[in-house]
Simulated scan of single mutants.
Amino acid sequence: MNKRAVSLAASIAAGLTLSLMSPAIANAVEDPTTPPAATWEELSPEQQASLQNAPAPDADQDLDIEPTGPSSVIGADGQVAYYSSTYCKTPSYYRGSSLMWTRDYVRFCYTGGAVTSSSGWQTRGYIFPNVAKNAGISRYYATSSTHKYQAKNTIGAGIVTPWGAVTLYEKDFLHYFTGGKTGSWSWTAAY
């Protein structure tokens, strides 16, 4: 029985010692070294330029105009008009640099004073630790004379630290496309 009492006393003493020491142990675990805060100046000039530069829509003369063959259009009076060919253009909208970039595309076809079809898609690329994200492109307006699209993208600049990659600056962009019945088109940036 004496051994039990000694064992019980030792257990109580050990528990008491651990409970007195545990705040010090807990503080040592709860205070990990935190990564330093980074600033805009720590970004490379290329990263800063990617976030600040104006976007670069394609110039009309750089586009390939593709004749696709005979087609027809139903006019406002219900009459069918036949045309020798339909033409298609694929203007794109580029933003960023070789470190992180997005590009929005719209392919639209037109003939005889009407837009006959259109479709949109996006591409992106980035070098770690930077980011580039596509949030979608969609047609929100379509008549025989005009098709309109809205595209959303995100570009972010980051740095590598001993704690991993840190994205310092991330910016969202919204672009609008309008394609017309004569082959005219435009890209505009909302923000």
Rank of each mutant, 00 (worst) to 15 (best):
Q47E: 12
A114S: 14
G112P: 04
K89T: 03
R139I: 03
Q52P: 00
Y87M: 13
C109A: 07
D60W: 13
A114E: 13
K89C: 01
T86N: 06
Q61F: 14
P45F: 03
M100T: 10
A38C: 08
Y140R: 02
P70R: 14
P36Q: 11
S144I: 02
T146D: 13
Q52E: 13
A49M: 12
M100K: 06
S85I: 02
H147T: 10
Y105L: 01
Y105D: 05
I74Y: 07
I127C: 00
L99N: 12
G78Q: 08
I65E: 15
K133R: 14
E41C: 00
E42H: 04
S71M: 14
R139M: 14
Y140G: 02
T116L: 15
C109P: 11
L51P: 07
N53Y: 00
E66Q: 13
A56Y: 05
N130L: 04
T116W: 09
S97T: 15
G125V: 07
L43W: 09
W101Y: 15
A59Y: 04
Y141F: 14
G69V: 12
A54I: 04
I65P: 02
V131M: 13
S144D: 15
P55D: 05
Q122F: 03
G78E: 10
G112W: 10
S71T: 15
Q61A: 13
D62Y: 00
A135D: 11
